[in-house]
Nucleic acid binder design. Structure first.
Length: 412
RNA sequence: CGGGAGAUGGCAGAGCGGUUGAAUGCACUGGUCUUGAAAACCAGCGAGGGUCAUACCUCCGGGAGUUCGAAUCUCCCUCUCCCGGCCA
């Protein structure tokens, strides 16, 4: 959630910055005027309440002393309705304010380039050279080695579900274990969390209220399947005040992720690129504000080095304003080389949300005497399914067999 | 899913319908003492808003109600714990 005080005090700057994310100025204007009205009405209400409180206390004293209390009682009763009216007005304003504010995305960081969509993202570097083949490299769905069973996955659930079999299933598990161990060596401690989350949890990280259509909801309950481990892991510390000396908290978590992919009908319908359910190993960090930049870079390096260790060529891309997600102030994507498709495709995405999620989820820390909002960061270590098919395509032999990357052999 | 108990500050745990935002203990922070530490003693110590700072307002799981006044009374919801059933 965006800091309302910033909006009140520095309206122009905020508007300018949020223009990068295509937020309409009218919405911000409405938000600001509601917040100012609220401030005004609240002051009036508080004065009235103070008066009531003082007189109520007097009432108690008078009653004890046996003085006449009828006049006081009448006065209090009369003011009571005034307080109630004003109170409900203030509550209305507060509700309006938070419902608008909760749908405003995060403010992009200064380092984020201008741009409309993914075509204007900025490449930051290429790591490793894509392999060359003396035969025509196939796409993963054409590699007929029995690892990926698309038909039966669909039979079990529906389209965009896939079953893994044999060494494919084994490789998936090997990747998960390898990544978790790799991350642990970089100081990310492993956590394991529920795959189902409630409304407060999804609101804390920004998926709700705006993106309910992208989530699988449990019928008859106010619960949802998680779209990423970022949601439960970040919310581990919701409504908490952490000790300064326990920060930064760096965590890694394997989970299944569930997404409706409502807006992407017709895209990537073949193969395992875009699924309703996929495995992912995630990195999540909770930091002090002054630590977040550094930890962000650690997370990017961690994911990039992981790809390098698997021998997968990839590139680093800084997302432009128009391509940034709702909660992110800054995002770097890692795109891995797919020989069959002859292009780079996203396999990891690391974001710094600054205090945006922390404000929503009320995650704070004691900075000396004061309580301050933490910064939260999240990023895929790697999406396991995409790593699996990246290995299939990059390590394919002409006869359709697939070599196993050196570092994974111990895990198979 | 059936029966019982409960939800108060970081934790534990008091709280008569009226100066209770809340006793007490632990933890924590600062100080005295000590060569240093421990112990002991003294002091401070919930959150959010508001203010230059005070004042002041709100919050005792959430919501509604009774009352001049609710942490304390009533109702609804949620959650937790114990007993039974089912079960990895």
């Amino acid at each position: 959630m965006l800091d309302i005080k910033l909006l009140q005090n520095d309206f122009e700057t905020i508007c300018e910055k949020l223009r990068k994310k295509k937020v309409k100025e009218e919405v911000l204007d409405t938000l600001r005027s509601i917040s100012l009205e609220l401030k005004k009405e609240k002051k009036v209400l508080e004065e009235l309440q103070a008066e009531q409180n003082a007189k109520s206390k007097l009432f108690g004293v008078y009653a004890k002393e046996g003085k006449d209390i009828n006049a006081l009682k009448a006065e209090l009763s009369e003011n009571k309705t005034k307080v109630a009216e004003l109170n409900s007005l203030v509550k209305d304003l507060e509700e309006k304010l938070s419902s608008i504010a909760s749908e405003i995305p995060n403010i992009p960081d200064e380092s984020v380039p201008e741009g409309e969509d993914e075509n204007e993202n900025v490449e930051l570097g290429l790591i490793l050279t894509p392999p060359t083949f003396d035969f025509e490299a196939k796409e993963h769905w054409d590699l007929d080695n029995g690892w990926l069973d698309f038909e039966r996955g669909v039979k079990l659930a529906k389209s965009r579900f896939t079953a893994l079999r044999g060494d494919g299933a084994k490789l998936s598990r090997a990747l998960i274990n390898y990544m978790l161990d790799f991350n642990a060596k970089r100081g990310f401690s492993e956590v394991c969390v529920p795959y189902i989350a409630n409304r407060e949890t999804l609101t804390g990280t920004g998926q709700l209220p705006k993106f309910e259509d992208d989530l699988f909801k449990i019928d008859g309950e106010d619960l949802f399947l998680i779209p990423t481990a970022e949601v439960p892991v970040t919310n581990l510390f919701r409504d908490e005040i952490l000790n300064e000396n326990e920060l930064p908290i760096k965590m890694t978590c394997y989970s299944e992720c569930f997404r409706k992919e409502a807006g992407s009908a017709g895209r990537d319908t073949r193969g395992m690129i875009r699924q309703h359910q996929f495995s992912k190993v995630e990195l999540v960090s909770i930091t002090k504000p002054e630590q977040s930049e550094d930890v962000f870079n650690q997370m990017v390096d961690c994911a990039s080095d992981l790809l390098t260790s698997l021998g997968l060529a990839h590139r680093k891309v800084m997302l432009c304003g128009g391509d940034l997600g709702f909660s992110a102030a800054k995002t770097i994507d890692l795109e891995v080389w797919f020989p069959g498709q002859n292009r780079y495709r996203e396999i990891s995405s690391i974001s710094n949300t600054m205090d945006f999620q922390a404000r929503r989820a009320k995650i704070r820390y004691k900075d000396g005497k004061k309580n301050k909002l933490v910064h939260t960061l999240n990023g895929s270590s790697l999406a396991v399914g995409r790593a699996l098919i990246a290995i299939m395509e990059n390590y394919q032999n002409e006869d359709g067999t697939i070599r196993i990357p050196e570092v994974l052999k111990a895990y198979m």
